[in-house]
Design a binder for these strands. Sequence first.
DNA 1: CCCCGAAGTCAATAGGCGTTGACATGTCCG
DNA 2: CGGACATGTCAACGCCTATTGACTTCGGGG
Lengths: 201, 201
Amino acid sequence: MSDITAPPRPLAAPRKRNAEATRAAILEAAKSHFAVLGYDCAILRDIARDAGVDVALVKRYFGGKEALFVEALRASFLSDALRTWDRATFARDMANMLAGSPHADEDRTHRFQFLLRAATSPNTAPLLNVLVQDRFLEPIRSWLGGADADARARVLAASYIGFLVERLIRGEALVGRERDVFVDRVTVIFDALLSEPVGSI
Amino acid sequence: MSDITAPPRPLAAPRKRNAEATRAAILEAAKSHFAVLGYDCAILRDIARDAGVDVALVKRYFGGKEALFVEALRASFLSDALRTWDRATFARDMANMLAGSPHADEDRTHRFQFLLRAATSPNTAPLLNVLVQDRFLEPIRSWLGGADADARARVLAASYIGFLVERLIRGEALVGRERDVFVDRVTVIFDALLSEPVGSI
DNA sequence: CCCCGAAGTCAATAGGCGTTGACATGTCCG
DNA sequence: CGGACATGTCAACGCCTATTGACTTCGGGG
């Protein structure tokens, strides 16, 4: 279906028989493939080949493609970085991160690519609802606190996603005046989202 | 591949033999399907069925799936919708559209869904580079005008995309107070992006 | 040392989809 | 009126993929 060649991944040296290791290898390859190609275009055979195993083992260890996907998605969202943010500087820090730096967090980008691809395929979008709710929206919500935290979390998450997409498309980090303008604008947005509603909105 | 049922589309009354009309019908159905399901999950047979024609005609009139997709993509961006937006009400209109509603501009949402889905599939992403630059970023940039239009267009597009993704994940339209809060917040954001930079920023 | 279950391999199956070319039929011009 | 070309229909092909179950091999405990 896809004419895109499989993602680069060094084929591991032949393992001794080890269920846990092969399971992990499959999961790792799956995360990579699903992130780059999306659920629909990712091919179990290729994933298995990169993991250095036979396709049938995917069934044995995970049950099927969809189950493997869910597992890979879960595994990609283990770390919860949100609680370490400082509310006072959150907006500007976030803006700076989104503007990009030469030493940007590769892992974060990768994980997010996964999320985005999963969100935009009709096959996997339904699976995402729960996960996003539990591991993304809910943390943001409780971190925000205050009135209408739910709706505000929604907007915050949406903005965050949008800038990450833009970052992915853009590729390179911003510099100079363009960066300054970008950071200022984004800071305003996130600051507005942190504040509680005023008046009778 | 997809367990999503085909999008609702009234099957047209049987036409007289008319090449132009059937071609248009196929294209219309294709736009809808590609927007909702994406390139990979859209099925030619379903598109043809919605258009009320046989699959083979897709080949006759367009040559193949990919050619049909390109044509549909082009057709979806023919009308330049941006210029019709009223700057005064832009922010709130946009926010309402993103919140979702039965009476929202279904067509516009469709077009951008189309764009997003096309951008996130490895099969179709390469086709998009020029299109996005010419028909998306550049129009926004010139529509915004003023100082630092480039960076502001970047932020606007990013926000837009973010809310679009959030809408896709969310699925259903917001209602009640949650919707009000959402709309107000988003309105603030877009309003901020419309304004020119102040001071020495 | 041997055997039994776990780990890994293999080939076949079933279903879906894009594509294709032969066939039927309506419409219009001479 | 009648044939010819455009339009529309049909069935089948070929390829790809997930899935499945039977088979083989390793490796450790009795």
